[in-house]
Design a protein around this nucleic acid. Structure first.
Lengths: 325, 325
DNA sequence: GGTATGGGGCGATACGTTTCTTCGTAAAGC
DNA sequence: GCTTTACGAAGAAACGTATCGCCCCATACC
């Protein structure tokens, strides 16, 4: 039951059916109504594939994360990414698009089998080959996280340096004098965060106490947390999402009371309601990335081609773990 | 740069290019290699839209949840659903499909704009209109949760009754004699859970102590938890995901110590590591639903048309909250 | 009466594949 | 020498839609 059948049943031409259903052309309302009624009666639904082929628009957005690690969907485990995806999906639907989550690489050629109107690449590598391939195919790309030297149509990102400073300022205000930093070397925004920390320490003239680890290595976080606490800080900031348990455990093993002996702050959505946490607000990032992307798609050719950028604010939730009694 | 250009550049026909790239037809390897090389050099990528139009297969699976509540994506807030989606996405990709999450209804006609090879409907209503519409269009449907009288190709579901019994048995073993049940009236599987609870109580000859509430109403959970504890149970089981905080708060307000005065068990993934929790294993449900659906799609016409069913096991993690010291 | 004008509608083409059928040729069988 | 078989490749017809341009017929206008 294609458009042809509707045309036949309504006694008009294919053109007229198409125009009537899409609100185009010059047709009297009587014809429009008639055609719509016949189409409804037959239960006609236009073929998405044919429409996509003809118009070049699929109504689909891709969302991917290029893994620095080899294993696919490494980021999926993070609440940060999950929340970003959730928000991006909802926003895309609001704007009339559907969103499909794809791996940067796959044994099956999924990218080749899906027609995408645009793609969001989260945390792209520098000069990301996937991004280049997409741009070559004419697919607009917006990145989540600063794209480095990769040329994209726009991006959203946190101001990682300012975010780190806000946490450090808070800890200092609470009385901390030796603030340690626990960072995952390969986490998104880690380098910026560490740089911000060092700069802050330099500004204040205090020593930088950092321990880094490979987030992918099981147990590395625990070990690094232990090393960090052994260096005798009176406050610690965990830059990697969900590292609060590691730090709390390490503190407990050393009989350090939180917050009495050790102030604690951590990145993430604050799974533990007693730990001061810095949210990167992934929901905002996801929504804004979609908005940017859809803007690019629908302005195609018209708008300015300067990459649009939006800075996602962070939110510091102060809890018991960093509040001196 | 369509297939035509490749054919011209390689000095062969369109048919030959198609056959060479898709591994079909009878061609000598020399030709195959040559064509592939030329295609690579030109950076040719077949149009997904055209392929979909021609073959009728898009490589896309839909995933939706029909909301009993009016607001879209109500379930999205649940970790259960989020985990199911995550797992379904990964499994789909493993099998060469991409997955797109759609709302049951939307101001934009998203369903009409996406060509789906099949759809997973989570927690469908009885005689779900969306399911009927999909089946009418010839789109295979697999449901998450028992489909009731809706005719689908298959479904996955927990054995809610057995799951509830396992929790109740555990609480009874731990010494509980008056076990209360807190249930959200509109939660997935709630009716089955409550029925299982009543049956178990009847079997044992103990009174049923239940409180139900509307999960959508803010504060209703707190109130119901309070009512339940006021009825003096020595153990409670929260059927709704994430209701542990409500129960714990209510216990604290009444100076009931957990587990000394009150044993506590809850559904969910065990966000609180001290609370005994019953996981419905959404990751398994998502993966299996996709496997079932892909099986139906790829066996189209060949296999038996009896709906395939798989029961997802539950997992009870016993923690401090239900362990008598 | 001839010609602008404009509303109403249709024919035909293009989008880029996949695939069914056909065709020629060369080797093999009798 | 004539028919069968197999191989290598190509022609052309779909798939179902959107849309450009054209045609026809009234009515109105000079």
């Amino acid at each position: 039951m294609g458009i042809r059948d509707v045309a036949a049943a309504a006694g008009v031409s294919i053109t007229t059916v198409s125009d009537a259903l899409n609100g185009k052309g010059r047709l009297p309302d009587t014809t429009r109504v008639h055609v719509r009624e016949v189409a409804d009666r037959l239960g006609y639904r236009p073929s998405a594939a044919a429409r996509t082929l003809r118009t070049g628009r699929s109504g689909l957005l891709g969302l991917t994360t290029t893994m620095r690690s080899t294993e696919p969907f490494a980021l999926t485990e993070f609440a940060w990414f999950a929340e970003l995806v959730r928000s991006a999906t909802a926003t895309a639907l609001d704007l009339g698009y559907a969103l499909v989550v794809l791996p940067a690489s796959s044994p099956h050629d999924v990218w080749g089998n899906v027609a995408l109107d645009g793609t969001i690449v989260v945390d792209p590598a520098d000069d990301d080959p996937l991004v280049h391939e997409l741009l070559r195919r004419g697919v607009p790309v917006v990145s989540g996280g600063h794209p480095g030297s990769t040329p994209v149509y726009g991006w959203v990102d946190n101001d990682h340096v300012a975010a780190v400073r806000s946490v450090l300022d808070h800890l200092a205000d609470a009385g901390a004098e030796r603030i340690g930093l626990l960072a995952a070397a390969d986490g998104p925004g880690a380098d910026k965060g560490v740089a911000g920390y060092r700069a802050w320490c330099a500004d204040r003239g205090v020593p930088a106490i950092t321990e880094e680890y490979e987030a992918r290595t099981p147990g590395a976080g625990r070990a690094a947390a232990a090393r960090l606490l052994d260096r005798g800080p009176d406050a610690v900031f965990g830059l990697h999402e969900g590292c609060a348990p590691e730090l709390l455990d390490a503190a407990r093993e050393r009989a350090l009371r939180v917050p009495d002996d050790l102030l604690l702050a951590c990145c993430g959505e604050g799974a533990d309601p007693s730990v001061t946490s810095l949210s990167l607000q992934p929901a905002l990032a996801g929504a804004w990335a979609v908005e940017l992307l859809v803007g690019v798609i629908e302005d195609a050719g018209a708008g300015p081609l300067l990459p649009a950028q939006r800075t996602v604010p962070t939110r510091l939730s102060v809890r018991d773990s960093s509040t001196r009694r």
